[in-house]
Design a protein around this nucleic acid. Structure first.
Lengths: 230, 230
DNA sequence: CATTTAATTAACTGAAAGGTTAGTTATATG
DNA sequence: CATATAACTAACCTTTCAGTTAATTAAATG
């Protein structure tokens, strides 16, 4: 019934000026562009605050293509989350903690975690957004769960070695410890704006950031060192 | 121009069945109802996800009244934030840390912070939402800033007493320490859904919650205890 | 008790937002 | 090279939503 107007030149066509179009279609590139734009938008505004129109626009792609590939906004959000977790766990897997002394391994893990959060602020806001939705998307993802088993095992191995050689206290739960290591950095960065406002300190200045990194190292090390009376 | 239909009976009039209206107007009550409803809605859905219509509805009040009192959605959000911070800092102020030994004072502060977060989950989601907006609302609030000076001073006093009597290590920054105490509990609760999903553990069960409280106490105490070699 | 003030409301508005439709066309394939 | 497939698009639709308007009326005030 409705009469459609003829198409205008494709936004996606990368044609050189006056020459032939170089590549006009590329599913993989479009998919990746959508995912990257979605990551940025969801990170900046949360799931509810992000706008699908804006994601499509900043990906340089028609909105219907986004729906064609990802189905709907929530499925796109889950795809972003999965890619995000795969990224951090993948980087983490290269740390080679087994090759280091327990104390050195723990220091490296703490530094890695802190630095990752500093360099990937989108990780924090995305995860926060997912928590606001009670992990409704993540719970459906087997992929993400599988990523985390090796992490717990490797921390457990470091803790056991540390306890055996007397560098660490015994009986530490690797999940509790990992959550603590993450929390000391994550919370600081995630809440830097409100904390900075109420304590009247610029917590994100290079100097303050470095002071925090050292503080986290001290807290973790201070906790793990065995009791003097043993 | 437009012809308005006549008003139907007020939703706010609490009239006893077949009798005279008992109280039909109460500015203070309406204000409080709006604030309470807004707190719940903003906590559950974030600033962007909360719906003004829903806040008004669940407060039992017309939406225009909400705008009459609070101006707009963002100003209402700030009012909620201010009330929320006043609540926690007010409760905290009754702890009487000065009357306790340094170790006991620190234990009480840690327990209070943990328990407050457990019992007031809305605090966490509200603050997260404000951080997503880079504390844009809070930065405008002098009221909230003033609430936090005494907190830092009181923690500093405990730390000094503890260092003087040998219970604590010396040189601890009270702001860093407070952020750490908060982070160990806040992050765990704020991210319990995603953490629970990836580690396949119900972190909010009473048993796990109590285990976390003890872990936080151990981390803080373990960090603060002075070095054996001193 | 007349008049003003403030509490309260139904209905409206314009814009935005998620999602759909009905196509067009580059490209891989038999 | 004809044809099927899938990449890609403009325009449209429907609902939702923040905010406004114009009025009504309970109470405070002189």
């Amino acid at each position: 019934m409705a009469v459609r107007a003829p198409r205008k030149p494709s936004l996606n066509s990368r044609s050189t000026r006056g020459g032939a179009a170089t590549r006009q279609r590329n599913a993989e590139r479009s998919r990746a562009a959508i995912l990257a734009a979605a990551t940025a938008q969801f990170a900046a505004n949360g799931l509810g605050g992000a706008r699908v129109d804006e994601i499509a626009r900043s990906a340089g792609v028609n909105k219907a293509l986004l729906y064609h590939y990802f189905g709907n906004k929530q499925a796109l959000f889950l795809a972003v989350l999965e890619a995000t977790y795969a990224q951090i766990r993948g980087a983490e897997a290269t740390l080679e903690l087994e090759a280091l002394s327990p104390s050195a391994a723990m220091e490296r893990l703490v530094d890695f975690t802190w630095n990752y959060f500093v360099q990937h602020p989108e990780f924090i806001t995305l995860v926060n957004s997912e928590n606001l939705h009670r992990a409704a998307h993540l719970k459906r993802s087997k992929r993400v769960r599988a990523l985390h088993h090796p992490l717990v095992e490797r921390i457990g191995e470091v803790l056991e070695r540390g306890a055996a050689c007397g560098e660490f206290r015994a009986g530490v739960d690797p999940v509790q410890l990992y959550i603590s290591i993450a929390s000391l950095g994550y919370f600081y960065l995630s809440n830097a704006h409100t904390l900075g406002a109420v304590f009247e300190r610029d917590l994100l200045s290079p100097r303050e950031r470095e002071a925090r990194r050292l503080h986290v190292q001290e807290v973790v090390h201070g906790y793990l060192r065995p009791d003097a009376s043993s």
